[in-house]
Design a protein around this nucleic acid. Structure first.
Lengths: 221, 221
DNA sequence: TAGATTGTTAATCGATTAACAATC
DNA sequence: TAGATTGTTAATCGATTAACAATC
């Protein structure tokens, strides 16, 4: 039976990882896999994998395993990765430049189609075929280009203001790289890639490697 | 009473966010705060904040609140942010370049003191006063420079190999930007900054904004 | 004292894991 | 049939929240 209720966040994150490993298996010509193998690849238990995949209904075959192809299709559909996502990037700094050319986004169907910065000295610069545009053009561009997602790569003091402008422009989801909390109205989604938090967590774990429960840390064994 | 047992990961992450907001309060001349205010700032409930802070023992004053200064000290000590962390960065690509000059790391006491890449064409390049070194010098540099943390910013296929080399060189913690799982022996810590997973999660949430439980998403309201 | 806010307990919620019958 | 592996239930674990006595 298909699992009822909304899919937990952690499950979604594992979906991304399953998909990535499955695509590799497919490239290697593997046609069938098992919950144990998949778990091993992403660092999860077999029961966990089966439970996650149960959200798709009964996709596996008892005694046999799962079809790699079927799983890939189900995961792509669930993660909405068939459709190409149009993305606007705000912030033409160091992080912004790296993201403009970030291959992993592009491969997954995330297309950065516009680039904004409020610094007039940067206006007109071209990175990866994208002209840096001034913020006043944001709304128009989002509408005309059918942009659904925004990425914030500006200093923390400016993050909330940029988020507000993105929301006003009609963006439906925001990936926030600024080390600051941004608030958005209901219906708009925010995910945060807070590198400082990750790094500080790492420092804590290293400093307390003995005191804390050993391992099971980030990815389980 | 001080909370017993190891500090949960989520609590550590909130510690980073509390600290950031507290430092801002301090800059603004605020001397006292409350669990309600702090919760509002980082997007957590007041009970959550009190429970987190209880790991430090009884730091607050009933009826009054918490001293900003005292909290900052406790958080800095717990997160081991007094001590300066020496970091090696592997991967002189787009992501690597952004990280070399990433102000947020530097402000928090993370110093990138060496840069490596296995591409001989990049050898000798200088970014942010760091010369790109060949991998064969990794072990020596880590030892001589007293480096404790490593950052992986290479393509996914190379990530595990780089991780192995970092571990062999004596690094105690790894921040992995490659969209791939890396395994490390017990005693070495790994945190992952998997931008693809974050972006795909965002896409899923946007695509299912109606079906999924509204909000409470990443940061709670 | 009255009002505010902590520290902590108990209740709740959610996610993971173990176990095993179902079935290929 | 025997061996393998799923789908699912129940048990466990861990983290969050509500509530309130303690106390400034």
């Amino acid at each position: 039976m298909t699992q009822p209720g909304p899919i937990p966040r952690r499950t979604i994150q594992r979906f991304s990882r399953y998909l990535r490993e499955l695509e590799r298996l497919e490239r290697d010509g593997v046609e069938t896999t098992s919950s144990a193998e998949l778990g091993e690849l992403v660092g999860a238990g077999d029961a966990q994998v089966r439970r996650d995949l149960a959200f798709f209904g009964q996709l596996g075959q008892r005694g046999v395993g799962y079809s790699v192809k079927t799983l890939i299709e189900a995961l792509r559909a669930t993660l909405s990765l068939n459709h190409e996502w149009r993305v606007v990037l705000v912030g033409a700094g160091n992080v912004g430049r790296a993201l403009c050319t970030y291959k992993v986004f592009r491969e997954r169907g995330f297309r950065i189609v516009a680039l904004f910065d409020n610094d007039p000295r940067k206006e007109g610069l071209t990175w990866a075929r994208l002209k840096v545009q001034p913020m006043r053009e944001l709304k128009k561009t989002v509408r005309e280009q059918g942009i659904e997602l925004g990425v914030i790569a500006v200093p923390p003091e400016a993050a909330q203001d940029v988020a507000d402008q993105l929301v006003a422009a009609g963006v439906r989801g925001i990936l926030n790289f600024a080390p600051a909390r941004v608030r958005v109205p209901p219906g708009v989604q925010v995910c945060s890639a807070d590198l400082a938090v990750e790094m500080e967590q790492l420092a804590f774990l290293v400093a307390n490697a003995d005191r804390q429960v050993p391992q099971r840390s980030n990815q389980r064994r």
